[in-house]
Amino acid sequence: MSKKIVDAHIHLDMYKPDERFGILRDMEANDVDALIAVSNHLASAQETIRLAHADNRVKPAFGFHPEQPLPTDEEVGDLLAMIERDSDRVVAVGEVGLPYYLRREGEMTSREREAYVHVLEAFIRNAAELNKPVALHAIYDDAPEVIDLLEKHSLSKAHFHWFKGDSKTMQRMMRNGYFISVTPDILYEAETRELVRQFPLDKIMVETDGPWPFEGPFKGKMTHPHMIHRSAREIAVLKGIPDEDVYHRLYDNTIHFYGI
């Protein structure tokens, strides 16, 4: 049985050109079928669509990553227009969400946070109108508020990438049929391992979030989609399911969720 994988969340545009070239060159050799390439902002989305036009294994998503200063109304408008204009090629709205780490690291007024919520809601509304999945940065105490917005706009195609949160939120996500994805930190992070034990396999995907670096066996190494093979095998161990069955499920989950 094939052990093909899809990287469900990677910032391909953030790699150096030679690193990106190597990743794309070696995809077939590493049994990597596709990359869900999310964007951080307008310039990122423009580069990501360029990469997608050059290589159809790159599946682009447009959004505004919340862990940065607020975008202008013009930038949000341009991103939303790009999503609509390229809707036949764009597989998702993302990465979008709320600024958990930015909020924790410094002062953020309630008015400023509300502005982030307003931006997020604009993207969620857009995804719902276009029937596109949404790739989310929504962790810990931000996650319930994001779920509120998803429910408000009846958007069920939600992917909480690298999710972290409490059991109550996790149960709510499962009831709503949302997906999660886990990174290679499953090999050494207790929180990620417990998440995988509890979440149903038919709602799990695997990702790198590259070029974000990892520790443990990956310390000092460039984050590469081939690391997902280690993640898949570890999920099999944690679930007590044969490797082949886990590979098949993870692959199908991602292909069907993103419609690729």
Rank of each mutant, 00 (worst) to 15 (best):
E121W: 06
R249V: 13
A135P: 02
S156C: 04
F64R: 07
I204R: 11
D55P: 10
E47V: 02
D185Q: 07
D202W: 01
Y178I: 02
D245L: 04
A81I: 12
L187V: 04
F160K: 05
Y188K: 01
A92E: 02
I255A: 10
I49C: 11
G94N: 01
E151A: 12
E207Y: 05
P217N: 13
V117E: 15
L24W: 14
V58Q: 08
P144H: 06
A54H: 13
L70I: 08
V196R: 05
D245Y: 04
D209C: 04
I180N: 03
L149K: 07
F160S: 03
H9M: 12
A34I: 05
P211D: 11
E114H: 09
G165N: 07
R113L: 12
F123K: 00
I49Y: 12
A34R: 09
E244V: 03
A115K: 11
S44T: 11
S167C: 14
D252Q: 14
L238A: 04
V196G: 11
Q171N: 15
H11I: 06
E121C: 09
V96H: 02
H41Y: 14
A52H: 10
D202T: 03
L98G: 01
G210D: 09
L24A: 13
I241E: 05
T183N: 05
K168C: 15
A143T: 12
P217H: 12
S44C: 13
G97C: 03
F218S: 10
A45M: 10
I124N: 02
E19Y: 05
V91R: 04
V237D: 08
L24N: 13
P133R: 01
A61I: 00
K152W: 09
I36D: 07
H159Q: 06
V237G: 00
N56I: 12
L187M: 08
H159A: 00
I228F: 01
T223C: 09
D78Q: 07
K221P: 10
I204N: 13
L238Y: 02
E191I: 02
P242N: 08
L187G: 09
F123T: 01
L12W: 08
K203F: 12
H11A: 05
V91C: 03
A34V: 06
M108C: 15
A232Y: 03
V182G: 06
H153T: 03
A135D: 07
R20M: 15
I255W: 09
G106A: 06
Y178S: 09
K4V: 12
M173G: 14
A34K: 08
Y101M: 15
T72C: 07
R50W: 10
D142Y: 08
G77H: 03
E114Y: 07
P66S: 03
H224W: 11
G216I: 11
A158R: 00
R193G: 13
M174Q: 12
R125V: 07
L250C: 00
R57T: 14
M82I: 06
S87D: 12
E84D: 15
F123A: 06
Y247C: 03
Y15M: 03
H53D: 15
A190W: 01
G63Q: 04
V119Y: 11
L35F: 09
L24Y: 14
